[in-house]
Structures are given as C-alpha cells and as structure tokens.
C-alpha cells in the first residue's frame, strides 16, 4: 500500500472539499443548479472515494452500514413526514404554504426539509449499494 502515496494524500486533501461542495450544492440548490439528488450523490462519492483508496474496512469504521441503512429509510420518512405535518396544520399533503404565516416562507421551509430528505435517502442508498457490491468478495469458480 505504500506505493500509493499520491492517491492516499490526494484523497485525504480532496475528501473534505467534496463533502463541503455537496453541502454547497444542497443549500444553494434554490438559487443555482443543484438540489438533494445531486448533493446526495456527491456526498456519497466522497465516502466511496475513501473506501476505494483506504479499503472497505476503514470506511465501514467511519460510517457503519447500520447507519447508512437507517439514513436511507430516514430520508423517505422525513419527506413523507413533512407531508403529514402539512396535513396536520390544515393544508393538503405536501402543501408547504401552511408551514409558516407567510406562504412564501412556508414554501422555503418545506423545500428545505424535503430536499434534506432526498439528500439523506440518496446518500444512504448510494453508499449502501457500494458497500453491498464491494463487500461481496470474489466468486470462486
């Protein structure tokens, strides 16, 4: 493994920026290109890169598979939960206008939460699929 110094150091430098960029894409999605889907994939790509360079065991210590599975379900629940909260507040399902006094602010909160749900699910699914494929071991034929 010592012959991959450039990869290891390069990855170490790059990964924080990849994760930060994912958050930028997430929260700047209202004003420019971006949103939950892209941010989730980029956030997952940071961990996938770590797994490719440092091995599956190390990335699983940073981010246990159980946490990833919980993430992928949590995002869907958050998305649907926002819908039920709007129903409880007197609106229709996923009508964010009732989340605040000013309907426009309500839309802002709603979109923020829903995009966060998408981010969490996409991130969880992508990393979990990577774990499943990488952890499968070579087939003996």
């Amino acid at each position: 493994m010592d012959d991959r110094v450039i990869l290891r150091v390069g990855a170490k430098i790059l990964i924080p920026f990849i994760l930060l960029f994912a958050l930028y894409v997430q929260f700047h999605g209202d004003y420019g290109p971006g949103g939950g889907f892209q941010a989730g994939v980029i956030f997952a790509a940071g961990f996938v890169l770590y797994g490719l360079i440092y091995g599956l065991g190390n990335v699983k210590r940073v981010l246990p598979p159980q946490a990833v599975y919980i993430c992928s379900a949590l995002g869907v629940l958050l998305f649907a939960g926002v819908g039920y909260v709007t129903m409880a507040l007197g609106g229709v399902f996923l009508d964010y206008g009732v989340l605040a006094h000013d309907p426009e602010h309500g839309q802002h909160y709603g979109i923020l939460l829903v995009e966060l749900g998408v981010l969490i699910t996409v991130f969880g699914v992508m990393v979990a699929v990577f774990y499943a494929f990488a952890g499968r071991g070579r087939v003996e034929t």
Binding site: D30, Y31, P33, G34, G35, P103, E104, I111, V114, E115
Partner: peptide, 18 residues
C-alpha cells in the same frame, strides 16, 4: 408562489412533490 429563482427546484420539490 414559491419565491426561489431556480424553477427546476421549485417544480421538483413543491409543484411535483408527490
């Protein structure tokens, strides 16, 4: 109605939330 500049995001998350 939504108040954000990126129409793709507003359609994705609000108009077509389902």
């Amino acid at each position: 109605e939504i108040g954000i500049p990126n129409v793709v995001t507003s359609v994705l998350a609000s108009y077509r939330g389902y």
